[in-house]
């Protein structure tokens, strides 16, 4: 199974904002991520919708450095 298939569906969320942010991320940023960052992205997708949106929107910060790198890309 290609990870991309599973990831695409994991990017389907209850919040339109998150659908938009994650779709953009998947299309524009994901391909340039290294293997470790891709694993981190999977972990990031495990967050609750509002938690994840808060990070992506800069409403909250994360102490997890690895999350931080990806979140910065999302905030672009």
């Amino acid at each position: 199974m290609s990870d991309m298939d599973r990831l695409r569906w994991s990017c389907r969320r209850g919040l339109l904002e998150l659908d938009l942010v994650l779709q953009r991320f998947l299309n524009e940023e994901y391909s340039s991520l290294g293997a470790e960052q891709r694993e981190t992205f999977k972990r990031l997708l495990g967050l609750q919708d509002n938690e994840l949106l808060d990070l992506a929107m800069g409403r909250a910060d994360t102490s997890d450095e690895k999350f931080g790198e990806l979140v910065n890309l999302m905030r672009k």
């Binding site: 389907r12 969320r13 209850g14 919040l15 339109l16 609750q48 919708d49 509002n50």
Partner: peptide, 12 residues
Amino acid sequence: SKVFPTRSHTVA
């Protein structure tokens, strides 16, 4: 459910 329950649209 198509998505994890707490990711349903009610979350919005």
